[in-house]
Every structure is written in structure tokens, then in C-alpha cells.
Amino acid sequence: MKKKTIIAYTNEHKRYLKKIKVDKATTIIAQVLILVVVLGLWEILTMTNAIDPFFLSSPSRMIKTLIETFKTGNLIYHIGVTVYETLIGFLLATFLGVFIAILLWWSEKLRKILDPYIVVLNALPKIALGPVIIIWVGAGTSAIITMCILICIVITTLSMLSAFLNCDKDKIALMKSMGANKFQILFKLIIPNAFVDFVSVLKINVGMSWVGTIMGEYLVSKAGLGYLIVYGGQVFNLDLVMSSTLVLCLIACVMYMLVGILERKVRKR
């Protein structure tokens, strides 16, 4: 029911809008330029053998490798494996982390008792648990997913718990004054109130779950992008290492952007 008004801009405002546009354009141009210069230098230096492409690969060789592995179907397979592991790890970690945070919010006693353990778990470099994980869950996909979950879950729990606890005391008192029980306070106030924080956690977890999965693949895998990178390193095939890394960057970006879109949708309301 908003009224539409037709606005005639003043010249000053037009200049202001123009300045914003120019500013945006120059930023993008600079960004593209950096990419082109770096790739160009890289290509030229390796082509003229100023740098040995054996150690650094080169853009053209990376593309060639990508096309080859794509043609054999290998690339898609390895991407599929890694994406699958990451997604499962990401979803499980997020779900479990939020669930634990809810339990900890619910019981102050539990929160106090578990506090030192959570601090230790948070401080521990999870990669140190690699051998233990392999022994416990076996050297396979489940070990990789476990690693991914371990890396994401603590931060998820801590962030969500702090979001839950940050809820305005007066809002809780309001709910109580209207006769709400603890379940109702949880589901009608605490959880929806923490939704914005939840989206931030999702964003963090996208990055973390890739770290977890690739780390897991370094440890145990027989397939996946992390495996390709390790394998490429072992046989000194820098083309494979570099091109797999590039693909990894691209996919991680796509996943991050998807969460970004979700975030914008949520914020709009």
C-alpha cells in the first residue's frame, strides 16, 4: 500500500549517482586487470622458460589438463565425490551443532558442566584426531565426513549458543508473562530470533566444511579433489595439482554464493 512518487533528481544528486557508478566500474576493471596480468605473466614466464612450468604449471597447461580429465569423466567423478562428502559433512555438522546448542541453552547445568570440554575441543587442532578417526570409523568416506563434522561442529555450537543466550531478557519475560512454557519460548522466540545468526553460521560452515573435507581426503582418500591434489603432488604432476585447486576454488565460491543468496532473501524481510 505504499504510494509511488515520481522523483525528479537534482543535478547534484545525478552527479552523486554518477560518482557511485564510476567508482563501481573502476573497482571491477581493476579486479579484472589484476587477474589478467597475473595469468598473463604466469603464462609468458613459463612459456619463455623463465620459470620452469614443471614447478609452477601454467594457465594453458592447467586448461589442457582440465579438458583431458573432463573427457575421461574423471574430473566429474572426483568433483562429485568431494561435493558429496562436503555437503553431507556440512549438513550433519550444522544440524548436530544446532541441536547441541539447543540442549545447552535448555539446561544451564549441562552448560556449566560441559564448558571446559567445549573449550578444549574448540582449541584442539582437529587434524590431530586424524589417526584416531581412521582407526575408529575406518579409512574411507566416513572418516572424511567425520573430519568435516569435527571441524564445523564446535564453532556451530558455540555461535548458536551465544545467539540463543543473547536473546533480549524482556522478550523472554514477555513470553513468560503471557504464560509461555519453555518449549514455546524456544520455538516461538529463541530459535526465530537467532535466525540471522544461523545464516552467518551457515556462511562460516561453507568454508569450514571444505577445509574439513579436503583435510580428510589428504588423510585417507582414494578419490576426490583433495585426493587429486595429493596424488598430483606425489607424482610431481603440478598441472594436476594446480588445476584441481582451481576447480576447488570455483566450487567453493559457488556454494558460498548460494548461501549468500539465501542470506539476502532472509535479510529482505
Partner: peptide, 28 residues
């Protein structure tokens, strides 16, 4: 059966006005 109003209105930003107003009914 008391009605309590606080310093700020404490409306829930994620609910429409109608949903905010009927919050108490929903709880009961």
C-alpha cells in the same frame, strides 16, 4: 491474567503485526 508492557515494544520482527498481536492467544 496480566498484561505486561516493557520499555521497548518488544514486537517480534519476524512476525507480522497480526501474528504479533495474536502471540498470546497462540501461546494459550
Amino acid at each position: 491474567d496480566i498484561g505486561y508492557m516493557f520499555q521497548r515494544d518488544q514486537l517480534f520482527e519476524w512476525r507480522t503485526i497480526y501474528k504479533n498481536v495474536t502471540l498470546g492467544l497462540e501461546l494459550k
